[in-house]
Design a protein around this nucleic acid. Structure first.
Length: 285
DNA sequence: ATGCAGTCCTGTAAGC
DNA sequence: TGCTTACAGGACTGCA
């Protein structure tokens, strides 16, 4: 599942091979994507050169200079990779940008929760993302804003971490890992967190994301980087996907509980529901 | 205003 | 063995 580290890895993989390439054509499938490609955009794309590739939240931003910008969201199973133009087309490839030098940029997405959009002009894409109401990158989050956001919310902290309007980049995997590293129970309400816990949680999120990026992200099922390589951070996960297994930090066992419709993985011993709990008992909410 | 449940989508795996 | 069902979750919609 592409979260911030996976998207960052795709961007870093694509940069050296895609910057400077010129799009010669675009082909797309019939199936509907969440972010469907409009064929009217082809005329902006064809003949345009890739100036830069950046990441904002979980979006890939491909800057084509004056014509505009391509935004790609990987959704859950999206893959954006470069391949030789004569390589066989895999199943579920919905979009293919033909580049010069015999190279394709292909978008493959099994569950079709992602897709690509084109936004004309220098600021079109910024308006699009502004409309999404994205919060700051975790490393740019101001401590005072973070404290205020948590203090003013009576939602479970797990839900808050997944809300991209508060903070971008975390998905289910890294939200669980961040909460474990900060030793905070996912059901704790935002307003119940003490300032030191808030600070610890933000620092944990940044640190988990940093380490995941260094490992090229986590490949749980479908994720691959821009070069087609899998990630490695799944080997370092402390709680996600480890239901029923030993907690690596204590004698407890990792449990799974549905919170806000998503699986939350945590160690009830290391992450007590009672603030300041010592871990002496397994608290069942 | 706020938070939650439902929805999309398909491959995988568990269960009968 | 073959079928059915549950599950995975990012981001959006609609409801209470």
């Amino acid at each position: 599942m592409p979260e911030l580290p996976e998207v960052e890895t795709v961007v870093r993989d694509l940069r050296p091979v895609l910057i400077g390439r010129v799009f010669l054509g675009v082909s797309h499938g019939e199936l509907k994507l969440r972010h469907a490609w409009n064929p009217d955009w082809n005329r902006f794309i064809i003949g345009s050169k890739v100036h830069s590739i950046e990441r904002r939240a979980k979006w890939i931003v491909i800057d084509l200079g004056a014509p505009g910008t391509v935004l790609v969201h990987l959704g859950m199973t999206g893959q954006l990779t470069t391949q030789p133009a004569d390589s066989p087309m895999a199943d579920h490839v919905h979009l293919c940008f033909q580049c010069d030098a015999g190279m394709d940029l292909r978008y493959r997405d099994i569950r079709r929760f992602g897709g690509a959009e084109f936004h004309a002009g220098p600021n079109g894409w910024k308006e699009r993302l502004k409309q999404a109401g994205l919060g700051p990158e975790p490393w740019d989050m101001k401590k005072s804003d973070w404290l205020a956001a948590l203090a003013g919310s009576r939602r479970p902290i797990k839900s808050i971490l997944l809300d991209q309007r508060v903070l971008v980049g975390l998905g289910n995997i890294y939200a669980d890992e961040s909460l474990f590293q900060a030793r905070i129970h996912p059901l704790r309400l935002g307003s119940s967190l003490q300032p030191n816990e808030c600070g610890r949680l933000l620092a944990s999120a940044c640190s988990v994301l940093d380490r995941a990026i260094a490992s090229r992200g986590s490949t749980i099922r479908d994720y691959v980087g821009g070069s087609g390589l899998r990630g490695g951070y799944q080997e370092s996960l402390a709680v996600y996907g480890r239901e029923g297994m030993d907690c690596g930090a204590c004698a407890g066992t990792v449990v799974r509980q549905v919170i806000s419709g998503r699986s939350a993985h945590f160690c009830p011993s290391c992450q007590p529901i009672e603030p300041g709990g010592s871990g002496s008992g397994h608290v069942v909410p």
